[in-house]
Design a binder for these strands. Structure first.
Lengths: 183, 183
DNA sequence: GTCTATATACAGATAGAC
DNA sequence: GTCTATCTGTATATAGAC
């Protein structure tokens, strides 16, 4: 991965942005090439098919998840707080990748489905010792999913009640109180 | 609305199913007509364009939301428990409509975005007196969103940790304990 | 009210020049 | 490594028969 080709990343960025901001139907190879500032032929040199393009976004997600899991393990505030806070980070590369891959998964791509599944398993495994029981763990994961879902449909001016700043800290405190292990 | 035409409903059912099970890209007019067992021309008699078809699904959601809000107000178990329990009802007409309209909204349809926004506002208004504060209300809404999100990407065998039966009752109890008003 | 046939545009993908 | 040109299939939409 030394000296990664510039165009490849530009194309993945553009594809991701189209998936997030304009939906799966708008994220065509044609539109992606235009948005990335390359020709269709140029794009297809790097990604020989739509499937390869989707696989590229999924691979990028997998890398980001690996880094995220490591960061979550090491977070001073604890995994639960870190997990919830970073679920609402609008514009964060990981969050963007998750939304993009969710769109791809809804189209039936097995790689994308599997990546999301594995990501969730890694999170659950890491959070499990920090929650009181299975119900508490489910609560934490569902709140995180809710934050993603709201991010995903926020486009066009719809402001879901995604908590920011103080409101986010209060939500984290509430969830931690409700889910913390007895000890 | 006396004696509603059969084909119209069949077409909306098929369009919804395609959006949910195969994603926005697969839900074309052609595929919808085939799935509904009518010809493309027949479909386009009832819905003159893709936009009209989308508007039909959105209108159906609006009707279901009106009925749901009424049922939630009257639920013996209380609005919060009713709200969470019905968020995970796989195959429920309302849940299906929400997922379908979310897909449409992601494509940028303003009507769909507005319908989801209004739905959320009605829920928030109804739940507000039954939650301790804004943070507690946000928690309830986010858990519900999480349940929907998991339903939406469950396809293809991915089983998110969507609680059912006993697990669902335990989750409701946990959320209610954490969010119930002081009095 | 539902059909077939067709017009027009755009999708994904390939070939080959530069 | 990136481009233009082009092939083939499919999308949306219209026209007009039944």
């Amino acid at each position: 991965m030394s000296r990664p080709p510039h165009a490849r990343e530009k194309v993945l960025d553009a594809f991701e942005r189209l998936l997030i901001d304009e939906g799966a139907r708008a994220a065509t190879i044609d539109a992606t090439a235009r948005a990335a500032g390359v020709s269709k032929g140029g794009l297809l040199y790097h990604f020989g098919s739509r499937e390869a393009l989707e696989a590229g976004v999924v691979a990028r997600l997998n890398d980001l998840v690996t880094a995220d899991v490591a960061a979550m393990s090491a977070a001073p505030e604890g995994p639960v707080a870190y997990f919830l806070r970073t679920s609402a980070m609008d514009g964060d590369p990981l969050d963007r990748a998750i939304i993009a891959v969710s769109q791809i998964a809804q189209g039936g791509n097995a790689l994308a489905l599997d990546a999301l599944h594995t990501m969730r398993e890694q999170w659950a495994e890491l959070l499990e010792p920090h929650t009181a029981d299975a119900t508490a763990l489910a609560l934490v994961l569902l709140v995180s999913d809710g934050l993603y879902f709201n991010n995903a449909i926020r486009e066009g001016g719809i402001a879901g009640p995604v908590p920011r700043g103080e409101a986010m800290s209060a939500l984290i405190a509430l969830v931690e109180t409700a889910t913390r292990p007895a000890r």
